[in-house]
Design a protein around this nucleic acid. Sequence first.
DNA 1: ATTAAAATCACCCTAAAGTATGAGGGAGAT
DNA 2: ATCTCCCTCATACTTTAGGGTGATTTTAAT
Lengths: 156, 156
Amino acid sequence: MTFKFLKRNRSIILYGASLAILLLIMKWLEWRIVVLDNAFELYAGAVAVLFTGLGIWLANKLTSPKTNTVIIEKEVFVKRDNFVLNETEIIRLGLSKRELEVLHLMADGLSNQQIAERLFVSLNTIKTHSSRIFEKLEVKRRTQAIETARKRNIIP
Amino acid sequence: MTFKFLKRNRSIILYGASLAILLLIMKWLEWRIVVLDNAFELYAGAVAVLFTGLGIWLANKLTSPKTNTVIIEKEVFVKRDNFVLNETEIIRLGLSKRELEVLHLMADGLSNQQIAERLFVSLNTIKTHSSRIFEKLEVKRRTQAIETARKRNIIP
DNA sequence: ATTAAAATCACCCTAAAGTATGAGGGAGAT
DNA sequence: ATCTCCCTCATACTTTAGGGTGATTTTAAT
Protein backbone atom coordinates (compact mmCIF):
# COMPACT_ATOMS: atom_id res chain seq x y z
CA MET A 1 0.00 0.00 0.00
CA THR A 2 2.59 2.49 1.11
CA PHE A 3 4.99 1.26 -1.53
CA LYS A 4 2.48 1.68 -4.28
CA PHE A 5 1.75 5.21 -3.12
CA LEU A 6 5.43 6.08 -3.11
CA LYS A 7 5.90 4.54 -6.51
CA ARG A 8 3.10 6.58 -7.97
CA ASN A 9 4.41 9.71 -6.32
CA ARG A 10 7.86 9.06 -7.69
CA SER A 11 6.44 8.79 -11.15
CA ILE A 12 4.60 12.05 -10.79
CA ILE A 13 7.68 13.78 -9.45
CA LEU A 14 9.72 12.43 -12.35
CA TYR A 15 7.07 13.60 -14.73
CA GLY A 16 7.09 17.10 -13.28
CA ALA A 17 10.88 17.20 -13.30
CA SER A 18 11.03 16.12 -16.92
CA LEU A 19 8.59 18.82 -17.85
CA ALA A 20 10.55 21.46 -16.01
CA ILE A 21 13.85 20.39 -17.55
CA LEU A 22 12.37 20.35 -21.00
CA LEU A 23 10.97 23.80 -20.59
CA LEU A 24 14.36 25.01 -19.43
CA ILE A 25 16.06 23.49 -22.44
CA MET A 26 13.53 25.03 -24.73
CA LYS A 27 13.98 28.42 -23.10
CA TRP A 28 17.68 28.14 -23.65
CA LEU A 29 17.18 27.05 -27.23
CA GLU A 30 14.78 29.90 -27.75
CA TRP A 31 17.46 32.29 -26.65
CA ARG A 32 20.09 30.64 -28.81
CA ILE A 33 18.23 30.16 -32.07
CA VAL A 34 15.96 33.10 -31.64
CA VAL A 35 16.48 33.97 -35.24
CA LEU A 36 14.52 31.03 -36.44
CA ASP A 37 10.87 31.94 -36.77
CA ASN A 38 9.23 28.64 -37.39
CA ALA A 39 11.23 26.75 -34.80
CA PHE A 40 8.03 26.58 -32.79
CA GLU A 41 6.67 23.63 -34.68
CA LEU A 42 9.96 21.86 -34.27
CA TYR A 43 9.82 22.34 -30.50
CA ALA A 44 6.24 21.19 -30.37
CA GLY A 45 7.11 18.12 -32.39
CA ALA A 46 10.03 17.34 -30.12
CA VAL A 47 7.91 17.79 -27.04
CA ALA A 48 5.21 15.61 -28.54
CA VAL A 49 7.59 12.79 -29.35
CA LEU A 50 9.37 13.01 -26.02
CA PHE A 51 6.24 13.04 -23.96
CA THR A 52 4.66 10.29 -25.98
CA GLY A 53 7.65 8.23 -24.99
CA LEU A 54 7.28 9.35 -21.41
CA GLY A 55 3.62 8.38 -21.51
CA ILE A 56 4.44 4.93 -22.78
CA TRP A 57 7.04 4.53 -20.07
CA LEU A 58 4.59 5.74 -17.44
CA ALA A 59 1.91 3.37 -18.61
CA ASN A 60 4.29 0.45 -18.41
CA LYS A 61 5.39 1.48 -14.94
CA LEU A 62 1.94 2.10 -13.55
CA THR A 63 -0.13 -0.72 -14.98
CA SER A 64 -0.32 -3.56 -12.54
CA PRO A 65 0.20 -6.96 -14.06
CA LYS A 66 -2.96 -9.05 -14.36
CA THR A 67 -2.90 -12.29 -12.46
CA ASN A 68 -4.27 -15.20 -14.38
CA THR A 69 -5.03 -18.06 -12.06
CA VAL A 70 -5.37 -21.27 -13.95
CA ILE A 71 -6.69 -24.19 -12.00
CA ILE A 72 -5.90 -27.48 -13.62
CA GLU A 73 -8.08 -30.27 -12.40
CA LYS A 74 -6.14 -33.45 -12.25
CA GLU A 75 -8.50 -36.39 -12.24
CA VAL A 76 -7.75 -39.24 -9.91
CA PHE A 77 -9.93 -42.26 -10.53
CA VAL A 78 -11.04 -44.19 -7.53
CA LYS A 79 -12.87 -47.47 -7.39
CA ARG A 80 -16.00 -47.66 -5.28
CA ASP A 81 -16.33 -51.37 -4.71
CA ASN A 82 -13.67 -53.62 -3.23
CA PHE A 83 -12.95 -50.90 -0.78
CA VAL A 84 -9.49 -50.82 0.70
CA LEU A 85 -8.81 -48.37 3.47
CA ASN A 86 -6.24 -45.82 2.51
CA GLU A 87 -4.20 -45.55 5.69
CA THR A 88 -1.56 -43.46 4.00
CA GLU A 89 -4.15 -40.82 3.31
CA ILE A 90 -5.35 -40.90 6.91
CA ILE A 91 -1.82 -40.40 8.16
CA ARG A 92 -1.19 -37.72 5.59
CA LEU A 93 -4.26 -35.82 6.72
CA GLY A 94 -3.39 -36.41 10.37
CA LEU A 95 -6.78 -37.78 11.35
CA SER A 96 -6.84 -39.22 14.86
CA LYS A 97 -8.60 -42.41 15.91
CA ARG A 98 -11.45 -40.59 17.55
CA GLU A 99 -11.90 -38.27 14.62
CA LEU A 100 -12.19 -41.22 12.29
CA GLU A 101 -14.78 -42.73 14.58
CA VAL A 102 -16.84 -39.55 14.46
CA LEU A 103 -16.38 -39.35 10.71
CA HIS A 104 -17.79 -42.83 10.30
CA LEU A 105 -20.84 -42.09 12.38
CA MET A 106 -21.32 -38.87 10.45
CA ALA A 107 -21.30 -40.80 7.21
CA ASP A 108 -23.91 -43.11 8.70
CA GLY A 109 -26.18 -40.12 8.91
CA LEU A 110 -26.10 -39.57 12.66
CA SER A 111 -26.54 -36.12 14.14
CA ASN A 112 -23.90 -34.67 16.44
CA GLN A 113 -26.20 -35.33 19.38
CA GLN A 114 -26.59 -38.97 18.40
CA ILE A 115 -22.85 -39.39 17.92
CA ALA A 116 -22.27 -37.87 21.33
CA GLU A 117 -24.68 -40.35 22.91
CA ARG A 118 -23.16 -43.23 21.03
CA LEU A 119 -19.65 -42.39 22.19
CA PHE A 120 -20.72 -41.34 25.71
CA VAL A 121 -19.28 -37.87 25.41
CA SER A 122 -20.80 -34.41 25.33
CA LEU A 123 -22.25 -32.67 22.30
CA ASN A 124 -19.54 -30.02 22.52
CA THR A 125 -16.87 -32.65 22.26
CA ILE A 126 -18.36 -33.92 19.04
CA LYS A 127 -18.55 -30.38 17.72
CA THR A 128 -14.87 -29.95 18.44
CA HIS A 129 -14.08 -33.22 16.68
CA SER A 130 -16.22 -32.18 13.74
CA SER A 131 -14.44 -28.88 13.40
CA ARG A 132 -11.05 -30.60 13.44
CA ILE A 133 -12.21 -33.10 10.85
CA PHE A 134 -13.43 -30.30 8.60
CA GLU A 135 -10.14 -28.47 9.03
CA LYS A 136 -8.10 -31.52 8.15
CA LEU A 137 -10.25 -32.47 5.20
CA GLU A 138 -10.38 -28.83 4.17
CA VAL A 139 -14.16 -28.74 3.96
CA LYS A 140 -16.93 -26.64 5.43
CA ARG A 141 -19.82 -29.04 6.00
CA ARG A 142 -20.34 -32.61 7.14
CA THR A 143 -21.80 -33.61 3.79
CA GLN A 144 -18.64 -32.39 2.10
CA ALA A 145 -16.55 -34.24 4.64
CA ILE A 146 -18.37 -37.46 3.84
CA GLU A 147 -17.93 -36.92 0.11
CA THR A 148 -14.23 -36.19 0.41
CA ALA A 149 -13.56 -39.02 2.83
CA ARG A 150 -15.34 -41.47 0.57
CA LYS A 151 -13.44 -40.40 -2.49
CA ARG A 152 -10.17 -40.80 -0.63
CA ASN A 153 -11.09 -44.26 0.59
CA ILE A 154 -11.04 -43.19 4.19
CA ILE A 155 -14.56 -44.48 4.65
CA PRO A 156 -16.38 -47.15 2.59
CA MET B 1 -0.72 -11.73 -37.60
CA THR B 2 -2.30 -9.59 -40.28
CA PHE B 3 -4.72 -8.23 -37.78
CA LYS B 4 -1.97 -7.26 -35.42
CA PHE B 5 -0.13 -5.50 -38.21
CA LEU B 6 -3.23 -3.56 -39.19
CA LYS B 7 -3.90 -2.65 -35.62
CA ARG B 8 -0.41 -1.31 -35.22
CA ASN B 9 -0.68 0.61 -38.46
CA ARG B 10 -3.96 2.08 -37.37
CA SER B 11 -2.39 3.26 -34.15
CA ILE B 12 0.49 4.88 -36.00
CA ILE B 13 -1.88 6.57 -38.41
CA LEU B 14 -3.93 7.84 -35.51
CA TYR B 15 -0.79 9.08 -33.84
CA GLY B 16 0.27 10.96 -36.95
CA ALA B 17 -3.17 12.41 -37.39
CA SER B 18 -3.28 13.55 -33.78
CA LEU B 19 0.06 15.26 -34.21
CA ALA B 20 -1.02 16.99 -37.37
CA ILE B 21 -4.29 18.17 -35.86
CA LEU B 22 -2.53 19.45 -32.79
CA LEU B 23 -0.03 21.36 -34.86
CA LEU B 24 -2.85 22.87 -36.87
CA ILE B 25 -4.66 23.92 -33.72
CA MET B 26 -1.49 25.44 -32.39
CA LYS B 27 -0.88 27.28 -35.61
CA TRP B 28 -4.35 28.66 -35.45
CA LEU B 29 -3.89 29.65 -31.83
CA GLU B 30 -0.58 31.24 -32.70
CA TRP B 31 -2.35 33.36 -35.20
CA ARG B 32 -5.13 34.25 -32.83
CA ILE B 33 -3.21 35.09 -29.70
CA VAL B 34 -0.15 36.32 -31.44
CA VAL B 35 0.07 39.16 -28.98
CA LEU B 36 1.05 36.89 -26.14
CA ASP B 37 4.77 36.51 -26.02
CA ASN B 38 5.28 33.82 -23.47
CA ALA B 39 2.36 31.67 -24.60
CA PHE B 40 5.03 29.35 -25.89
CA GLU B 41 5.51 27.61 -22.56
CA LEU B 42 1.78 27.18 -22.24
CA TYR B 43 1.64 25.48 -25.59
CA ALA B 44 4.58 23.29 -24.74
CA GLY B 45 2.96 22.29 -21.47
CA ALA B 46 -0.31 21.50 -23.20
CA VAL B 47 1.48 19.45 -25.81
CA ALA B 48 3.40 17.64 -23.10
CA VAL B 49 0.29 16.73 -21.14
CA LEU B 50 -1.64 15.74 -24.23
CA PHE B 51 1.07 13.56 -25.64
CA THR B 52 1.76 11.97 -22.30
CA GLY B 53 -1.86 10.89 -22.34
CA LEU B 54 -1.50 9.74 -25.90
CA GLY B 55 1.59 7.78 -24.94
CA ILE B 56 -0.24 6.07 -22.13
CA TRP B 57 -3.07 5.22 -24.48
CA LEU B 58 -0.64 3.97 -27.09
CA ALA B 59 1.17 1.83 -24.57
CA ASN B 60 -2.08 0.27 -23.47
CA LYS B 61 -3.05 -0.37 -27.07
CA LEU B 62 0.23 -1.70 -28.30
CA THR B 63 1.85 -3.59 -25.47
CA SER B 64 0.52 -7.02 -24.76
CA PRO B 65 -1.08 -7.12 -21.33
CA LYS B 66 1.23 -8.11 -18.53
CA THR B 67 0.04 -11.35 -17.04
CA ASN B 68 1.32 -13.42 -14.21
CA THR B 69 -0.04 -16.89 -14.85
CA VAL B 70 -0.36 -18.91 -11.71
CA ILE B 71 -1.03 -22.56 -12.32
CA ILE B 72 -2.64 -24.43 -9.50
CA GLU B 73 -2.98 -28.15 -9.83
CA LYS B 74 -5.95 -29.48 -8.00
CA GLU B 75 -6.58 -33.15 -7.47
CA VAL B 76 -10.09 -34.22 -8.29
CA PHE B 77 -11.12 -37.62 -7.11
CA VAL B 78 -13.52 -39.25 -9.54
CA LYS B 79 -15.35 -42.45 -8.95
CA ARG B 80 -15.67 -44.83 -11.83
CA ASP B 81 -17.39 -48.02 -10.98
CA ASN B 82 -20.06 -50.47 -11.84
CA PHE B 83 -22.91 -48.45 -10.47
CA VAL B 84 -26.33 -49.25 -11.88
CA LEU B 85 -29.15 -46.87 -11.12
CA ASN B 86 -32.15 -48.44 -9.51
CA GLU B 87 -34.99 -46.76 -11.36
CA THR B 88 -37.60 -49.06 -9.87
CA GLU B 89 -36.70 -47.75 -6.45
CA ILE B 90 -36.93 -44.16 -7.61
CA ILE B 91 -40.40 -44.78 -8.99
CA ARG B 92 -41.44 -46.68 -5.91
CA LEU B 93 -40.39 -43.79 -3.69
CA GLY B 94 -41.99 -41.30 -6.05
CA LEU B 95 -38.96 -39.06 -6.37
CA SER B 96 -39.36 -36.40 -9.04
CA LYS B 97 -36.70 -35.33 -11.50
CA ARG B 98 -35.95 -32.13 -9.66
CA GLU B 99 -35.81 -33.88 -6.33
CA LEU B 100 -33.26 -36.31 -7.68
CA GLU B 101 -31.22 -33.41 -8.97
CA VAL B 102 -31.23 -31.79 -5.56
CA LEU B 103 -30.41 -35.11 -3.93
CA HIS B 104 -27.35 -35.49 -6.14
CA LEU B 105 -26.07 -32.04 -5.33
CA MET B 106 -26.69 -32.73 -1.66
CA ALA B 107 -24.58 -35.84 -1.90
CA ASP B 108 -21.87 -33.78 -3.54
CA GLY B 109 -21.68 -31.82 -0.31
CA LEU B 110 -23.31 -28.62 -1.45
CA SER B 111 -25.28 -26.43 0.94
CA ASN B 112 -28.87 -25.53 0.18
CA GLN B 113 -27.72 -22.05 -0.78
CA GLN B 114 -25.19 -23.43 -3.22
CA ILE B 115 -27.73 -25.81 -4.72
CA ALA B 116 -30.14 -22.92 -5.17
CA GLU B 117 -27.49 -20.94 -7.01
CA ARG B 118 -26.56 -23.91 -9.14
CA LEU B 119 -30.15 -24.53 -10.20
CA PHE B 120 -31.02 -20.84 -10.50
CA VAL B 121 -33.86 -21.04 -7.99
CA SER B 122 -34.41 -19.58 -4.53
CA LEU B 123 -33.18 -21.01 -1.26
CA ASN B 124 -36.76 -21.61 -0.17
CA THR B 125 -37.41 -23.77 -3.19
CA ILE B 126 -34.48 -25.99 -2.32
CA LYS B 127 -35.72 -26.20 1.23
CA THR B 128 -39.08 -27.38 -0.03
CA HIS B 129 -37.43 -29.95 -2.26
CA SER B 130 -35.26 -31.10 0.63
CA SER B 131 -38.25 -31.58 2.87
CA ARG B 132 -40.04 -33.66 0.24
CA ILE B 133 -36.94 -35.76 -0.30
CA PHE B 134 -36.66 -36.43 3.43
CA GLU B 135 -40.35 -37.34 3.58
CA LYS B 136 -40.09 -39.75 0.70
CA LEU B 137 -36.89 -41.33 1.94
CA GLU B 138 -38.30 -41.35 5.45
CA VAL B 139 -35.29 -39.64 6.96
CA LYS B 140 -34.67 -36.58 9.09
CA ARG B 141 -31.37 -35.15 7.89
CA ARG B 142 -29.54 -34.69 4.64
CA THR B 143 -26.71 -36.97 5.73
CA GLN B 144 -29.23 -39.74 6.34
CA ALA B 145 -30.82 -39.05 2.98
CA ILE B 146 -27.46 -39.47 1.28
CA GLU B 147 -26.81 -42.71 3.16
CA THR B 148 -30.20 -44.16 2.31
CA ALA B 149 -30.09 -43.07 -1.31
CA ARG B 150 -26.67 -44.60 -1.71
CA LYS B 151 -27.71 -47.87 -0.18
CA ARG B 152 -30.67 -48.05 -2.54
CA ASN B 153 -28.53 -47.29 -5.58
CA ILE B 154 -30.34 -44.07 -6.26
CA ILE B 155 -27.10 -42.15 -6.27
CA PRO B 156 -23.58 -43.48 -7.02
C1' DA C 1 -60.61 -27.53 -21.08
C1' DT C 2 -59.98 -29.41 -16.72
C1' DT C 3 -57.27 -31.66 -13.52
C1' DA C 4 -53.28 -33.30 -11.07
C1' DA C 5 -48.68 -33.29 -10.18
C1' DA C 6 -44.51 -30.74 -10.16
C1' DA C 7 -41.96 -26.72 -9.41
C1' DT C 8 -41.57 -22.37 -7.64
C1' DC C 9 -41.39 -19.02 -3.66
C1' DA C 10 -42.46 -16.67 0.89
C1' DC C 11 -42.64 -16.20 6.00
C1' DC C 12 -41.91 -17.68 10.50
C1' DC C 13 -39.98 -20.34 13.72
C1' DT C 14 -37.08 -24.05 15.89
C1' DA C 15 -33.28 -27.24 15.72
C1' DA C 16 -28.94 -28.45 14.40
C1' DA C 17 -24.53 -27.43 12.71
C1' DG C 18 -20.52 -24.89 12.71
C1' DT C 19 -16.92 -21.16 14.55
C1' DA C 20 -13.96 -19.22 17.96
C1' DT C 21 -11.67 -19.43 22.08
C1' DG C 22 -10.05 -21.17 26.25
C1' DA C 23 -8.97 -24.69 29.30
C1' DG C 24 -7.90 -29.03 31.86
C1' DG C 25 -6.39 -33.92 32.09
C1' DG C 26 -3.91 -38.02 30.29
C1' DA C 27 -0.43 -40.70 27.57
C1' DG C 28 3.56 -41.20 25.12
C1' DA C 29 7.98 -39.22 23.50
C1' DT C 30 12.53 -36.89 24.32
C1' DA D 1 10.26 -33.95 33.98
C1' DT D 2 8.72 -31.41 30.27
C1' DC D 3 6.54 -31.24 26.01
C1' DT D 4 3.28 -32.31 22.67
C1' DC D 5 -0.79 -34.44 21.01
C1' DC D 6 -5.23 -36.13 21.88
C1' DC D 7 -9.42 -36.07 24.09
C1' DT D 8 -12.46 -33.82 26.69
C1' DC D 9 -15.76 -29.94 27.83
C1' DA D 10 -17.67 -25.21 28.16
C1' DT D 11 -19.57 -20.75 26.64
C1' DA D 12 -21.03 -17.65 23.33
C1' DC D 13 -22.17 -16.63 18.89
C1' DT D 14 -23.34 -17.11 13.76
C1' DT D 15 -24.94 -19.77 10.07
C1' DT D 16 -27.35 -23.40 7.95
C1' DA D 17 -30.87 -26.82 8.03
C1' DG D 18 -35.37 -28.23 8.60
C1' DG D 19 -40.65 -27.93 9.70
C1' DG D 20 -45.15 -26.00 8.81
C1' DT D 21 -48.19 -23.53 6.10
C1' DG D 22 -49.96 -21.38 2.18
C1' DA D 23 -49.74 -19.68 -2.39
C1' DT D 24 -48.81 -19.13 -7.53
C1' DT D 25 -47.23 -20.86 -11.77
C1' DT D 26 -45.75 -24.66 -15.13
C1' DT D 27 -46.26 -28.73 -17.14
C1' DA D 28 -48.26 -33.03 -18.39
C1' DA D 29 -52.03 -35.89 -18.79
C1' DT D 30 -56.91 -36.95 -19.54
